[in-house]
Design a binder for these strands. Structure first.
Lengths: 300, 300
DNA sequence: GGATTTTACGCATTTCGTAAGTATT
DNA sequence: AATACTTACGAAATGCGTAAAATCC
């Protein structure tokens, strides 16, 4: 068993069990990986992959379990290189942050700015995606940290730190009827509503609030992106249910914002990373920056 | 970076950073490991080991961190071989159980007997030691499971399952004054006491009970082993504070036993194993046997 | 027939072992 | 003086690439 065989299994998995593509990915010829796979299976005494004739079709039950182990091995290898690089190069490196549009635009700017002042030689790459994919990015090594509000299941492989608590707010044009009078779920339910797509930015908490009241929300437009929602609110399509921090007092001065903290359960944005993923010192400091920025919000 | 270099670091650590011994352990000549170490350090760009001249003296900070990673890599490698072996050989293998004398003698016999009936081809090796070393056995791969009452700190690397709850009891010769009348901590404190050594079989709970009452226990003999304690109780050295399940109604019929459940906090014996250690099916079934045997005790 | 995997064989690289040299205690 | 580590060099083993054959769709 050697590193290349370990890597091969993962690369095969990521490339539809296509030996030729896996060979390309690993910068060797097909015959080489074919041979290595044979040797690996021979050593283990059982096939790792299912075949139709010669063609590889998937993992055997054994292969699935072995794949899981190879992933921790490769993570450890990656960690070793990362640790060594940290010692050699000091405060240089890349931090891959998986997050959503809302966090990237309304929460991260300040902590990232402060982080960059302290660690000018560390590059910060924001990997933006839908919440359900953020954790995947952690697992497949495309991100070091995930910052998200929903879908963070604690399965023991993740370290999850609560970051800050926030509420939703409703935004609407100034002349809208909801702009005055008491705000109730009933009145909200009577309006066309624009809000986040399923799985985005606390959408599930919005659902929950209305379900508990036996009301149905009339969502006429769902978007992943607060700016899209605000754009259509301005066009008069309805009121926007957005994260409170996504309202900008200056840029959104033409809109009325009303807090929904008493109507919709608060959401908690969390920081997550793989327990087995080594975070260099600058990564840990970045988390500290996030938590400091979060305190400003939690105690405001 | 290859597997041998990874293994080398751990073997060096386990052999006092002695290259020659490490070479023996790995069944290669010294010059080979010397060269491999150089190559590894060269690849990482910094030394892993501190040196006085040519002699290796210890790990650098980098080496310490890398060692931690190499250990997870080797664990994963071990898991792969174990998984493959499980597929090839079915219900055969070895289960290494780290535990103390008390558990081995008074709790394990029944579940092990039942387990052996179901898995006759699995060998059960009991690695007996002091509680403080049991967890070490897990970490250095000498045991798959640990069964112990004390010193199980949950640091995230362990899976800890509570197994059964039990109390201490006091045993004494039949004519002893404590054999009749109300049992109190005061009366116990007035007797010479024989009990477990520090760190053994709930000894800390005994301490706690007396400390809370402001009483001092007069321990005239401490042993790791219930049978030793009972032997000296029979010689009249004092009363024995032992685990309730260590009293055998038949063999110990010459002794009086009195329950201390109202005086000394109950202890919980736990099952622990490394989260990252792959347990074959028979290992998981063994845990089930333990938990079943535990239920008989908990609900008796 | 195009794509994919396997097999065969020679070449290149890596790793090891022997042996000698250098440093440490 | 004995033990421990490094260096040098030839030998063995390992892994790769080219090319051709076999198989799949």
């Amino acid at each position: 068993m050697n590193m290349n065989q370990i890597e091969l299994l993962r690369v095969l998995y990521e490339n539809g069990f296509n030996l030729s593509k896996a060979a390309d990915r690993m910068h060797v010829v097909q015959s080489a990986v074919s041979r290595q796979l044979q040797l690996f299976e021979e050593e283990l005494g059982s096939p790792l992959l299912t075949r139709h004739g010669k063609k590889l079709t998937g993992l055997t039950p054994l292969g699935q379990k072995v794949l899981a182990q190879t992933q921790t091995m490769q993570q450890a290898k990656k960690n070793i290189l990362s640790i060594a690089s940290e010692y050699k190069n000091g405060d240089t490196g890349i931090l891959h942050i998986a997050t959503t549009h809302t966090q990237a635009k309304y929460f991260l700017p300040k902590p990232i700015r402060r982080f960059r002042d302290k660690y000018p030689k560390v590059k910060v790459y924001i990997v933006q995606s839908s919440p359900e994919h953020l954790i995947d990015f952690l697992h497949n090594g495309e991100a070091d940290l995930a910052i998200c509000t929903e879908k963070v299941s604690e399965d023991g492989t993740l370290v999850v730190k609560p970051c800050y608590e926030w509420h939703h707010a409703v935004v609407m044009p100034k002349q809208h009827p909801l702009a005055s009078g008491e705000l109730t779920l009933e009145r909200l339910a009577s309006c066309p509503v624009l809000t986040y797509s399923f799985g985005f930015t606390g959408r599930s908490n919005i659902e929950k609030a209305f379900e508990n009241s036996g009301l149905t929300l009339d969502v006429v437009l769902a978007a992943a992106d607060t700016d899209v929602i605000k754009t259509y609110v301005r066009l008069g399509l309805g009121v926007g249910l957005i994260a409170e921090m996504a309202y900008d007092a200056v840029a959104d001065a033409d809109l009325v914002v009303r807090n929904l903290s008493s109507l919709i359960p608060s959401s908690v944005t969390k920081i997550a990373y793989l327990r087995q993923n080594y975070l260099p010192a600058y990564g840990r400091h970045f988390i500290e920056e996030l938590l400091e920025a979060a305190e400003d919000i939690n105690f405001q």
